[in-house]
Amino acid sequence: MARAGRLIAPHGHDSLDKTDAALESSSRGLRVLAVSFAVLMVTAAVQAVIVVRSGSVALLGDTLHNVADALTAVPLAIAFSVGRRAATRRFTYGYGRAEDLAGIVIVLIIAATAGLAGYEAVNRLVDPRDISAVGWVAAAGVVGFLGNEWVARYRIKVGREIGSAALVADGLHARTDGFTSLAVLLGAGGSALGFPLADPIVGLLITVAICFVLRDAAREIYHRLMDAVDPGLVDQAEAVLRTVGGVRRVGSVRLRWIGHALHAEVEILVGHDLTLLQAHALAVEAEHRLIHEMPRLRAATVHTDPYDPSGADHHAPLNSHRIT
């Protein structure tokens, strides 16, 4: 097969820089998870005390949700730690996929939370009871909102800075939890006005909100497991490759997330009369541009094909082996 060959262009100082950046981003992620875990557990503890005193199932649902949100930090922290391990001959891409496994655990935790909160709310609808300490219940709802909103901002900010979609999604989850905490105020207000069913009704509404979060989280994890990426990233990679002098055409571009790092496999068409060294130099430049202009990209494999004006198919021997 007439071709310049499969050219994997290692880029020495960038590889080292990217590895250091990856370790630092994992360390920052671990710090965020530790701090947010502490904040949410304190928030949930304050709410739990008031749940025992008041008997509010709306507040119980919100408390359980906050506990679940805090617990999602545990599998994520494990995943960040495992993801820092170096690649091996068995795990040749490293351990970044541990974040996706953590995502599955998070989805299961959210599902269990929805089921428990819904069960308690239905029980209270069947057997309605007045709640006490209405003022404290309302205060607990405000505490839940403030705790979740602080955690949401912290997770989203750092998640975007280090390129962790899992951390950003967890931050958005916390923000949703904050608004469900405010819903507790409605239940407390209804009970104060002599409508005891307001509390379990709000509890059911919180359960529905949790189910929406569950749907979004499950969809996000499904996309990651299926190697889905934002099409805009593919457009960006193609645009970068077109700026490389000597690239006649851009072929296929494949991107995948491995943890919070992006990896690329691309094909470029170069002049068919180039020497091997010249084609290799173009592959090096293409990888160099991709790594520098796509901040979340950690590694790229660049494959060069000859651009032949005669239209010859230099991959003909492989055609019968390709899946169409």
Results as ranks from 00 to 15, higher is better:
residue 261 A to M: 05
residue 124 R to I: 00
residue 300 A to F: 01
residue 323 I to F: 02
residue 26 S to I: 07
residue 130 D to E: 13
residue 218 A to Q: 09
residue 164 S to T: 06
residue 265 E to R: 09
residue 104 I to K: 07
residue 249 R to G: 09
residue 200 P to L: 04
residue 16 L to S: 14
residue 234 V to P: 14
residue 302 V to L: 09
residue 159 G to N: 05
residue 194 G to P: 03
residue 124 R to K: 11
residue 281 A to G: 08
residue 66 N to L: 05
residue 45 A to I: 10
residue 295 P to I: 02
residue 55 G to Y: 08
residue 43 T to A: 05
residue 134 V to A: 06
residue 182 L to N: 13
residue 184 V to Y: 12
residue 241 L to S: 10
residue 53 R to S: 11
residue 218 A to W: 12
residue 311 G to S: 12
residue 172 L to S: 06
residue 227 D to E: 14
residue 66 N to D: 10
residue 56 S to K: 06
residue 155 R to S: 10
residue 206 I to R: 09
residue 142 V to G: 02
residue 199 D to M: 10
residue 275 T to C: 02
residue 100 D to R: 11
residue 306 P to Q: 04
residue 252 S to T: 05
residue 160 R to F: 00
residue 146 L to F: 13
residue 123 N to I: 00
residue 245 G to I: 00
residue 25 S to G: 14
residue 69 D to T: 15
residue 152 A to E: 07
residue 114 A to S: 10
residue 312 A to L: 07
residue 124 R to Q: 06
residue 299 A to C: 00
residue 201 I to Y: 13
residue 212 F to I: 13
residue 296 R to S: 02
residue 291 I to T: 04
residue 251 G to P: 02
residue 82 V to P: 07
residue 64 L to T: 06
residue 240 V to G: 10
residue 1 M to I: 05
residue 73 A to Q: 07
residue 123 N to Q: 13
residue 206 I to D: 11
residue 277 L to F: 05
residue 204 L to F: 10
residue 47 Q to D: 09
residue 83 G to P: 01
residue 315 H to D: 15
residue 54 S to R: 07
residue 239 A to N: 08
residue 259 G to M: 05
residue 197 L to N: 04
residue 137 V to G: 03
residue 10 P to T: 06
residue 14 D to L: 15
residue 89 R to F: 06
residue 48 A to R: 06
residue 37 F to M: 14
residue 49 V to M: 06
residue 305 D to P: 01
residue 150 W to L: 15
residue 191 S to H: 11
residue 73 A to I: 02
residue 81 S to A: 15
residue 140 A to F: 02
residue 154 Y to S: 09
residue 290 L to G: 11
residue 233 L to D: 14
residue 281 A to V: 00
residue 225 L to Q: 04
residue 99 E to Y: 09
residue 136 W to S: 05
residue 273 D to Y: 00
residue 260 H to E: 06
residue 317 P to R: 08
residue 171 G to Y: 13
residue 233 L to G: 03
residue 83 G to A: 14
residue 17 D to C: 08
residue 121 A to M: 02
residue 36 S to Q: 03
residue 103 G to Q: 11
residue 184 V to P: 10
